[in-house]
Design a protein around this nucleic acid. Structure first.
Lengths: 289, 289
DNA sequence: CAAAGCTGTATTATCCATCATACAGGTTCC
DNA sequence: GGAACCTGTATGATGGATAATACAGCTTTG
């Protein structure tokens, strides 16, 4: 029974570096601190740093040059999806990228107290539970667990769920959806989600919990979504709305769509496109987050 | 050179269980599966499960009874803060909870390329960089790194920053803020953030990156915030706005405050409730999901 | 060219998280 | 009361991750 204990420190350093790279903090072409420097910074041996870099290299995020250093390599390989706060990513499909859905599980049963309460169900009332994974360009990026009251769930089949958005099916059943609440949070990947999302257990995930209500106030859908943060993030534009006395911000509804250049960026002002200077960033990486 | 390697599997199980507890999936009073069951479920030895439970117990999240089982204990100790999407948490302060700010670092220098670009700075232009930790009821919940163009930063002092909201200071300098973009994501805690937030390295964190612009389009503030997911989460209400053909949702601006009916009183039987010192702080807030 | 830095590679030793197993003692329930 | 759970506790063995160290070959720089 090999125990297959995974690395700890090495993996940690790998994740931290990876994070800074995909976040754009370390732009492509940047030279990382040397292995001895990283080792000192994280208080580990060079061997361990080496392992972390091995992972990054295997993933194509960095490129090592013997005698020279380790360089960030082609961040473009990782292009996160950007969704606005209402969680619409249709414009991404417009961009030529296709999303697929894989239905992992489908069935009926009595939900947990928490789900039952949030949907406003009576004790013992049954729900349909489904687990889906959404892929973009063949790569998984979200793990969706949905609970729907049984009387709604019975109006569509398993096959239909695999082919149509759930909300569409719910509305087709005659239910009107009018209001929803959602909360965004973060977690670690558990075994199932990690497998489905092609991640390692313990990776960070973005969480979205949404409950959709019909006008009467009954809950019609409980969605629990887990997103890979390197492939998905929420984005929103805000405008100042309060009177000058108070600082209040409201979401800009018709937000500009061109904002999908990947990476964090502004793209609002004309003067962006500052300089793609050939990253002459030789040694400056010392600065921290 | 003691290496002090931390647990891996044990910690993982601890985090997973902890997550389900604070998320309300395992309400207070629930009996956890037995140690042998958990061991089998996670494919580890009972010793390892034991370690995970030790951590939970030390944190006061579960209580063990020899011969009987392990029970979830007083989730109310963990009360997450809820912020709406414009990241205003003033209404929380109204409810009697106080936030404090600790200024960890303050200085001027040349920012990273990423920051410079997002603020629309010319190469070499300097910024003020500050790192703050925000506490609620004495407990840290957010780690804020802000970058402000030097010409704005010079209008206030280090002491003022520690005492006033940054945006207030920026506006006091004569700058008008009008637009902002923000992105929400997830990461793992690095060494500094972990220390500041009283977490272990590798814990999941909620991320908010916000850039505030003045009307001319210049960036005036770059905020990178890390939040403890167990103490903070984003919440928003959505209303259906599209015509019935399209499913489109928009944030409900004046969202009803009393809306959510707290789930703290979900626990069915109250076999638990061991009288310990009442945590002084009113526990009215609550509401998660 | 030579010094200084870097990555690549190897070896040895240590540590500790985990496993496997066994038994003691408490609780629950029939 | 006793079977069947449970938690508490102790044991030794093991293997993978990490540390410490040394040296090679390449690259950059002055």
């Amino acid at each position: 029974m090999k125990s297959a204990v995974e690395p700890l420190k090495a993996r940690r350093i790998y994740l931290l570096l990876r994070d800074r790279i995909v976040a754009g903090e370390l732009p492509a072409g940047t030279r990382l601190p040397g292995e001895p420097a990283l080792a000192a910074e994280h208080a580990v041996s060079r061997v361990t740093v080496r392992r972390a870099l091995d992972l990054l290299e295997k993933e194509g995020l960095v490129q090592r040059k013997a005698g020279s250093g380790t360089f960030v390599h082609d961040t473009r390989a990782v292009r996160p999806i950007v969704a606005d706060l209402s969680n619409v990513l249709s414009h991404l499909i417009d961009m030529g990228r296709s999303t697929d859905v894989k239905l992992l599980s489908f069935g009926y049963g009595v939900p947990s107290d928490q789900i039952a309460e949030s949907l406003g169900l009576k004790p013992g009332e049954r729900v349909q539970r489904s687990v889906r994974v959404r892929l973009i360009d063949g790569e998984p990026f979200s793990y969706l667990t949905t609970h729907v009251p049984e009387w709604i769930g019975l109006t569509y089949s398993e096959a239909e769920l695999a082919a149509h958005p759930l909300l569409e099916l719910i509305e087709r059943s005659g239910v009107t959806t009018e209001r929803a609440t959602q909360a965004i949070n973060a977690t670690l990947a558990g075994p199932e989600a990690a497998t489905a999302l092609d991640l390692e257990i313990g990776s960070p995930l973005l969480t979205l919990t949404r409950i959709v209500y019909e006008p009467s106030g009954r809950g019609v859908e409980h969605l629990h979504a887990l997103y890979r943060p390197d492939r998905y993030s929420f984005h929103m534009d805000l405008v100042r709305t309060g009177n000058d006395g108070e600082r209040r911000w409201s979401p800009a509804l018709g937000w500009p769509r061109g904002t999908d250049k990947t990476k964090a960026e502004k793209s609002k002002p004309d003067k962006n496109k500052l300089g793609e200077k050939p990253t002459r960033t030789a040694r400056a990486i010392k600065q921290r987050s």
